[in-house]
Design a binder for these strands. Structure first.
Lengths: 139, 139
DNA sequence: AACCTATACCTCGATGATCGAGGCGTCAAG
DNA sequence: CTTGACGCCTCGATCATCGAGGTATAGGTT
């Protein structure tokens, strides 16, 4: 049962942290709900449209799948963050979601929390750049 | 077996999205590994120190628990992103972790991915602010 | 008619990240 | 000798997301 060295320590496989897609994955993980609220803040949309709007508005850096978005929309609606109305377009019916007051509040909270985090991220890059500069100067 | 209305639709409880701690939670979820690399980019540290350094350097906005950090450190080491040396301080031995070249590369990749995401976040706030302004002007 | 593609919504099992509670041991102060 | 800070670790539970799959209609092509 000899396992690859990298698996031996933890018992499970280790992601490739040098691969941008790893980081994009975890970014997506926490930002999907945020961006769903974000695109709906601009205008009401139906689910399919939300999926595409998120992908487009984030330049593809956060593109949640339908399997993520639809349950999220349902949950948001059940929680009172969204209200849906039925719309019939060319014989086909679709559910159009709009942010409620509660939803707008929640989005504001989310924005604040994330801006705080982005400050930390930007700051950490500044620090890292500083460390590199110090190395160049002193090393 | 009548359930609360908010639970009926999805079958599971709905978090309070108006609560900052919800968003801080998901932020933490994706940024813990990032900030572990970040603080180790500044200087080598042992695990306990990493926990405190992350908390401090992010002003508490991302404070992973020990139960998160220790497994992460082991995984990073197993993957070759960190190298550890034993250090004895006052009779007590501790493992000091330092970023390897590979780890530095991975951090750079992470920073790039996150900066792209932060741009989207900032932009989404700008759009939201614009929408509010339009409402004030027109409504 | 049969077929394909785009639209539109949904479900389910698997994976992965984190928490929090707990365990284990050392050292120093009271 | 107990308490608290240090220091490392594990495990079960929870949650977010994926991706593959299912269902159905509209419009177009062959």
């Amino acid at each position: 049962m000899t396992k690859a060295k990298s698996e031996a320590a933890t018992g499970r496989r280790i992601p490739d942290y040098s691969d941008p897609s790893y980081w994009r994955g975890t970014i997506k993980m926490s930002l999907s709900k945020f961006f769903v609220l974000s695109v709906l803040h601009r205008k009401p949309m139906h689910g399919y449209e939300v999926v595409q709007a998120v992908e487009k508005s984030t330049n593809g850096c956060c593109s949640p799948s339908e399997g993520t978005v639809y349950p999220v929309l349902n949950e948001f609606e059940a929680g009172g963050y969204l209200a849906s109305t039925n719309e019939v377009v060319q014989g086909r019916s679709r559910k159009v979601y709009a942010l409620t007051e509660k939803g707008r509040d929640a989005f504001q909270v989310a924005v604040d929390a994330w801006l705080e985090a982005t400050d930390c991220i930007v700051e950490s890059r500044r620090m890292a750049a500083g460390a590199v500069k110090r190395e160049e100067r002193e090393g």
